[in-house]
Each structure stands twice: as structure tokens, then as C-alpha cells.
Computed example of a mutant assay.
Amino acid sequence: MPTRIHAPSMRASAFIRARAAMPIDIDSPYPLAPEQIAQFRRDGFIKLKDVFDADTLRHYGEEITRLTIALNTQTVPLEERSTYDKAFLQVMNLWTQGGLVKEFVFGKRLAGIATALLETKGVRLYHDQSLYKEPNGGITPAHADQYYWPLDSDRCITAWVPLQAVPQDMGPLAFFAGSQHVEFGRDLGISDESERAITQNMEAHGFPIVDAPFDLGEVSFHLGWTFHRAGPNRSQTPRSVMTVIYMDRDVRLKAPDNHMQQNDWDTWCPGAKIGEIIDTPKNPVLFEAAA
């Protein structure tokens, strides 16, 4: 007897039409409780559930992936790369390509969360960055992002947005809770040395590492000086992540401490002047809190 495919009921049809008509939403506020802001202040990071739904991640993720593949310049086989280059494929400032990715990066939900967690009057874009850890990709060594940033304040934050769930074998981002106040290791870029020295120091001082999987739609936020790392991707699926880095809208450029900060100044803040607010065409204000 041939299999019959039944038409959906009237109620199911109405539900399908309603789902299809639902707009993609990246601008409505995400409510944060005072306890969550206090937790972020204490730990230097927070993971938030259900920031985006599956449809939204799919809608923007397909274009983010397409551009990451198209613009990536890594051609060296994985087994021949350095520890840094084994960690992920990365493409920065995808928003400058316009279209859906610019729409996502300029979305007010993430920027509003960043503003609330930083407890500032608003945030600017520092830059965005896709981070794709390939199957069999290596660890992301322990480090603090602000080693690379010529900013005169700690009011800067990264939103880490997985485009799929991140189980343990895919290498979820892991944080050393409370480490944002530690100065040891701030002079180390991502390397074998940073992994060894920072991890050893964190363990010696008893900073707990939070190394849990990410559910679909879960997003983390961490301060520039919060130490973090990630394990290898042992799965057969790329760990696809989009990040957006925000800074206090009033943050000022400081004289670079290393050649990486000089490169960031030239690349992500062109035209900014030391001691002045970083107000350039590449660093637009993305959110301002209500007065």
C-alpha cells in the first residue's frame, strides 16, 4: 500500500503560516536581572540562554559562513600550522561587506546587553570577528583579548555567538571566573607559552574554570581582561562562531604597549588619536542607554 502524506490540519496550517510570518528579531531588548549584572561584575563573564532562536541563527549564520569561507586566506594544511593557526579560521570586520552581516553586527539586542553589563551609557563597535574551529582544530590557548587592544579602559566586552549548539567535544569557550583583575599574563599573546603560564597561574590561585557546553541560542559575554581558553574540536563539524567586540562609547585610544596594539590601531581604529575618544567611521555607536 503506498504511503499517504496527509495535508496539515487547519490549526497546523495556521501555525505554520504564523511561524513563516514571524519577523527575525535582533533588536528587541533582552531582559537582564540585577543579579546577572552583579554576577558579570564579579566573574568577568556571563552566559545567557535563548538570546537568539534557531531561525535567527540560521538566517544570519548562512551568510556569515559563506563570507568566512570566501574571505578566509588560510591555505596551510591544518597539521602544518602553528598552535595559533590551528585554533580557528578567522575573518574580521565582516560587517563592512554590508547586507545581512552588517544587519546582525549592528543589531541592538547584543549591543544593549553589552551596554548593561558594562554599566556604561552606550557602546561602540571595536570590530567583529568570525571564529571557525575546524574539525580536528586545536586548542585556543589561554589569553586575555585586551592584550591586543589599545584602549585606555577595561570597559570593553566580547559577545561570543555560536551559530549552533557547542557540545563539549566541539571546544566550547571556557572562562577563568574572576580573573579580570589579575595582571599576570596580560603581556602574553595567544601561544603555547600563554597556555602554559596563564593556566598554571590560574590554577595556583584557585580561579575556577567554567567549561560547559553551549545550548543553541546561548551567548557568552566576557570582559577584555578576563582570561579564557577553549579545547580542541574533536567532532567532525566546524565550530562556527560569530563575535562582536564592543567598547564604551567614550573609551579613548592609548599609546600601544606592543606591536599587536599598534596593528589594531591602524586596522580597526584608523584616524583615531591617542588620548581622544575612538570616534571613527569604523567605530560607530551601536547602542545608547535611555537617559
Rank of each mutant, 00 (worst) to 15 (best):
E134A: 10
D152Y: 03
L57K: 09
E193V: 12
I139N: 06
W149Y: 04
L89H: 14
D248Q: 09
V251C: 11
P281Y: 04
R239A: 03
K282H: 06
W268D: 06
E79H: 14
A165Y: 07
R234D: 05
F207M: 11
R109Y: 09
V76M: 13
G61N: 07
S191T: 15
D187F: 04
G189R: 10
E35M: 07
I64H: 03
I278D: 01
V285P: 04
E35I: 11
Q164H: 01
L131R: 14
V285R: 08
P232A: 12
R155L: 10
A290M: 11
S235F: 11
I113G: 02
E62K: 12
K282M: 09
M92W: 06
P232K: 08
D187C: 03
V244D: 05
A291D: 15
P232E: 08
V219Y: 06
D53M: 10
M10H: 09
A212W: 00
A111N: 06
G224S: 07
L78H: 07
K273L: 14
Q74S: 07
E218Y: 01
D257H: 15
L117D: 00
I277G: 00
T140Y: 08
V166K: 02
A144R: 02
G137L: 03
G171Y: 02
L57R: 07
K254V: 14
E134W: 12
V241C: 08
A14P: 00
K121N: 12
I46L: 03
S194Y: 06
C156E: 06
K47M: 12
D43C: 02
D215P: 04
A21T: 07
P232N: 06
D211T: 05
S9R: 08
G107F: 13
P150C: 00
H205T: 04
I64S: 02
K49A: 15
E79Y: 10
T243Q: 12
V101R: 03
P162R: 08
A18K: 08
T226A: 03
D128G: 10
D250M: 13
L100T: 05
V241I: 15
V101F: 05
Y126I: 11
M247S: 09
N136V: 03
N93R: 14
M202P: 03
I209C: 13
Y60Q: 02
L253Q: 10
V182I: 15
M22N: 08
M92D: 13
E193C: 00
I198S: 09
H205Q: 13
L32Y: 13
D248K: 10
F104E: 01
S220W: 06
E193G: 00
L216M: 15
